[in-house]
Nucleic acid binder design. Structure first.
Lengths: 175, 175
DNA sequence: CATTTAGGTCAGGACGGTTGACATAACACA
DNA sequence: TGTGTTATGTCAACCGTCCTGACCTAAATG
């Protein structure tokens, strides 16, 4: 009974089983899967380092964006991360307790809590970004026509159109 | 007290606060962030459709790889997904109960449970991949020199080197 | 003064993962 | 035959990261 080979359609228990999908110009399996694997390994770089501090990916994201935008208020952070304040709460508290971030009352609106990295938080964030940048740099060096612009345009094109202004705002400090 | 502007280093409660990181050739903030946002929106496409079935991302990944490799055994799936069998268990059971997958005893080694999609499972997987492929296609169309090869090489270069053979094996059916 | 806003917190729950321990069926081998 | 190993499944306990709902304080706003 070798009838279940991948190229034969077969029946079992009344349930039909099927061959692998045919190649289709609108089914780009290779790029879909490469994106999945690439992101998995891209994020794994940082996971190990974060583990040493007892941090997870949520801490990483908060640390990253506070370093990118020192003085950010909590509401801005919630908007970027698209999570609720109840979910941000513990993460923020741990980062403050561990001395990676500080919260300072807003100079004009004292209800606000401006978020700043400490030197410790800045160092960790830079280390994490450094690891990820090295992987990106290595990947760009591996392609035929070393075209950083194309990669940037491609990734930007992957972002939901309505989101692009928000992301562009975040990027305005660099090109 | 407007001394907390982003370009001034300041002290508060004994904790130093800092300026945004300087541009650095080994700190590619734009691409790091674009990768984050791109993956977020790439994955969000599928989430809505999955929600209608009460499925999450774990179901998506299982459904995808079983469709790509019909007849895959459980151990192979665990290796690709890098999760434990305890964590796969409920996901697999739900997909079988909902009629998206079937499990068939291996014809040679009857301990094995060969995984096959049903027509229902195949349809859903193709729908999901179609959405994601359209986003990728749109992103490639948006770049200057429409070079699919470069994108593929870039994403492949992002994958952990020791993992590349495994991923290449998965891709061998297409170019 | 009343209302709204920024932020924090408590309670309860869901999902998706983990480790450890154990069970079952089937294969492999001496 | 028996013994050990392999493929898979399951029970229990736990963790991280999200959620909703409800409620609170302090400060700004009218």
């Amino acid at each position: 009974m070798s009838g279940l080979a991948a190229n034969k359609t077969e029946n079992s228990a009344g349930q039909p089983v099927f061959d692998p999908p045919e190649p289709d110009e609108d089914l780009d399996f290779p790029l879909v899967e490469l994106f999945f694997f690439a992101y998995r390994d891209f994020i794994a770089d940082a996971d190990g380092m974060l583990e040493e501090y007892g941090f997870g990916r949520a801490h990483h994201r908060v640390l990253h964006f506070v370093n990118r935008r020192p003085g950010m208020v909590v509401a801005e952070l919630l908007e970027i991360l698209r999570i609720t304040k109840q979910s941000l709460g513990p993460v923020l508290r741990q980062l403050v307790e561990s001395g990676h971030l500080v919260q300072i009352a807003g100079p004009e609106d004292r209800r606000q809590r401006l978020l700043y990295p400490t030197q410790k938080g800045r160092n960790l964030s830079i280390q994490l970004t450094h690891m990820q940048s090295r992987r990106i740099k290595g990947a760009i060096e591996g392609i035929k026509n070393k075209d950083r612009e194309s990669i940037r345009d491609f990734l930007f094109g992957m972002i939901e159109p309505e989101e692009r202004d928000l992301v562009n705002g975040l990027m305005e400090q660099d090109q």
